[in-house]
Computed example of a mutant assay.
Amino acid sequence: MSGYRLAVCAEMVFLDLPFAERVERIARLGFEVEMWGWATKDIDALTKTGATISSMTGYLTGTLADPDGAEELLRTARQSLEVAERLDCPRLNVHGTGLDDKGLPVIPAAVVTPPMWLTAARTLGRLAELGERAGRVFTLENLNTAVDHPGTPFATAADTLALVEAVGSPHLRMNLDLYHAQIGEGNLVELVERALPHVGEIQVADVPGRREPGTGEIHYPAVAAALDRLGYEGVVGLEGWASGDPEEALERFRRAFTVA
């Protein structure tokens, strides 16, 4: 058996159920649970589900690369850490800039300038210090700009990895999203090999459509074999829509990442 664990994003499956019931259903099926923003959630109800919440969004508003936005990101990151403590959630996810309800950047950037890089690295260093004091890990997620998140700065896996490496803290890791990486960069196994020492978690969905493995072009069993060969012991999270019955979609995900 592989050493990694499987999680499912409750924002994208069992959509006919209230959120806490989605979390319970995913946990009953044997998965850890990931969620996005906490501000609209009943945190007390989530604490009673008994589920392992393995990842959540680590800020409400703010950006990495301008001073005012950075202060706002850090302010809401502190609030997020308090919620993570209540949920016993080890990882908090951030992006290059805040995203609106359509996934679009609140401050788009066609060009990322050298001062933006420096400000982003300093902001992430301060974020890592917050994580260290709280005993939590912040993860910086790569995104794609071609389909889902046009105009997002620091979106590529290469850029995200460069920032994480620059900070050099165990409390700032990369959330390597292979769905986004396939759209933007490809060469997924090589990317996993390069990034894995800096990875805090891995997220997956197939391309196109952002649905469960087996519905698109990515051969995820090969990725699973690479993770097993490399000794990955973290979480692989399905952040994708179900193509049909959600339970069957989750079973397809499990089968794709089951290494004999």
Rank of each mutant, 00 (worst) to 15 (best):
L104S: 08
G62K: 06
L188N: 07
I43K: 01
A222E: 13
L143V: 12
F31R: 14
V199K: 01
L176V: 07
E141V: 08
W241G: 05
A70E: 08
F253P: 07
A181G: 01
T145V: 15
T40S: 12
R136E: 13
A146C: 12
R229L: 05
E233P: 04
E21P: 06
A27P: 09
T47A: 12
F31A: 06
A146H: 11
A134I: 12
V259H: 06
L161Y: 04
D228M: 03
V204E: 09
L92S: 08
P213E: 02
A181P: 03
L191G: 03
P67M: 02
D148P: 15
E251Y: 14
F31G: 03
L15R: 11
V167P: 04
T63N: 15
H171A: 05
D44I: 05
R28S: 07
L250P: 06
I183E: 10
P115E: 12
L230M: 13
E201I: 09
E82R: 11
T215Y: 02
W36E: 08
T258Y: 00
T49Q: 12
G151M: 02
T61K: 15
E247M: 03
L188Q: 09
M56P: 08
T47P: 03
A121P: 02
S243R: 11
G231D: 07
L87Y: 10
T63K: 02
A20C: 04
E71N: 14
A242G: 11
F19W: 06
G69C: 04
E247L: 03
P153W: 06
L60S: 13
V223L: 08
A146Y: 13
E82A: 15
V111G: 00
H219P: 05
E239I: 02
I53N: 01
D148G: 12
P213W: 00
A226W: 00
E85T: 14
T152D: 07
E32D: 15
G209W: 02
